[in-house]
Computed example of a mutant assay.
Amino acid sequence: MRRVDYGGGDDRIVFVLGWGNRPEHDGVQWLIDRLTDAGYRVSAFELPRTITDFEREYLAPVQSFVDGLDDYRLLSHSTGGLVARHLDTDSSLQTRTYLSPWWGFHADLQNPLVSLAAKLPVSTPILPAETTRAELGSLASDAWVADAPDYAAPTFLREAKRAQNSLPPFDDRDAVFYNPSDPIVSGPTIEDHTPESNRVAFSDGHELFNSSARDDHIDAVLAAVRDGASAL
């Protein structure tokens, strides 16, 4: 798993990106710039686009990194939110903030064909997974839309579903930013897992950092990263 570090602050943020995101993508950089401007050192993790084992390929590399930190703040987006929910944490974790966590398949993926395909022991990306700018967020760059995965491997969906089915209890100190009408992940599942006082809704796509509403919410995101759900 690839990690890229930004900034030189004393307080570290571990940022686990979503499936397909790269640290260099414009929207991700927009958010990283806001975090480094606030004085943080950001360690951004880019998830592999194809896996066969959630714990070994997604969870273990991040777990190994945070286990070596004296203190840190955790930020995650989408599939990264699935990883962040599963991390074994202790008192070194200061806050945990989720952006559009993938805790449940969108209604469009909850059908017999997807369920059957996810059972195939195939690690080659063969299942259509193309996303549009409207789905990602209206500020998504041409470069990101072009680089976004067009296909997903059955093993990736299998491992994501398995991780979703074994989510640890929600920590009521955590903050969640989400789109109730998210076109990619399940908004209702996020609401089922998150108390109303711990969540903030936004509009325009799946990615807050590419949403036209991002400037309206960045101060709240920074406050949540700093102080947790109590800042909402």
Rank of each mutant, 00 (worst) to 15 (best):
G9Y: 09
G9R: 07
G9C: 06
G9H: 08
G9F: 07
G9P: 08
G9A: 12
G9W: 08
D10G: 09
D10V: 09
D10P: 00
D11S: 11
D11L: 11
D11T: 11
D11H: 08
R12C: 03
R12E: 13
R12H: 06
I13F: 10
I13H: 11
V14T: 09
V14L: 06
V14F: 07
F15C: 05
F15P: 08
F15Q: 05
F15E: 04
F15T: 04
V16Y: 06
V16T: 07
V16L: 05
L17P: 11
L17E: 10
L17S: 09
G18P: 09
G18R: 07
G18I: 09
G18S: 11
G18M: 10
W19N: 14
W19H: 15
G20Y: 03
G20K: 05
G20P: 05
G20D: 02
N21A: 15
N21Y: 12
N21P: 01
R22A: 15
R22N: 14
R22G: 15
R22E: 15
R22W: 13
P23R: 10
E24N: 14
H25Q: 15
H25D: 15
H25C: 08
D26A: 15
D26S: 14
D26K: 11
G27D: 12
G27T: 07
V28D: 03
V28S: 02
V28W: 00
Q29P: 11
Q29C: 09
Q29A: 12
Q29S: 13
Q29I: 12
W30F: 09
W30I: 02
W30H: 06
W30V: 02
L31R: 01
L31I: 05
L31D: 02
L31Y: 01
L31F: 08
L31Q: 06
L31H: 01
L31A: 10
L31G: 00
I32N: 03
I32T: 07
I32L: 08
D33Y: 01
R34P: 06
R34W: 10
R34Q: 15
R34T: 09
L35K: 07
L35F: 15
L35R: 09
T36Q: 03
T36P: 07
T36W: 02
T36N: 03
T36C: 06
D37M: 13
A38T: 04
A38G: 02
A38D: 11
G39S: 07
Y40R: 08
Y40K: 10
Y40V: 11
Y40T: 10
R41Y: 03
R41D: 05
R41P: 05
V42R: 00
S43T: 12
S43M: 00
S43W: 01
A44Y: 02
A44M: 04
A44T: 04
A44I: 03
F45G: 01
F45L: 03
F45C: 04
F45H: 08
F45R: 02
F45W: 11
E46L: 03
E46T: 13
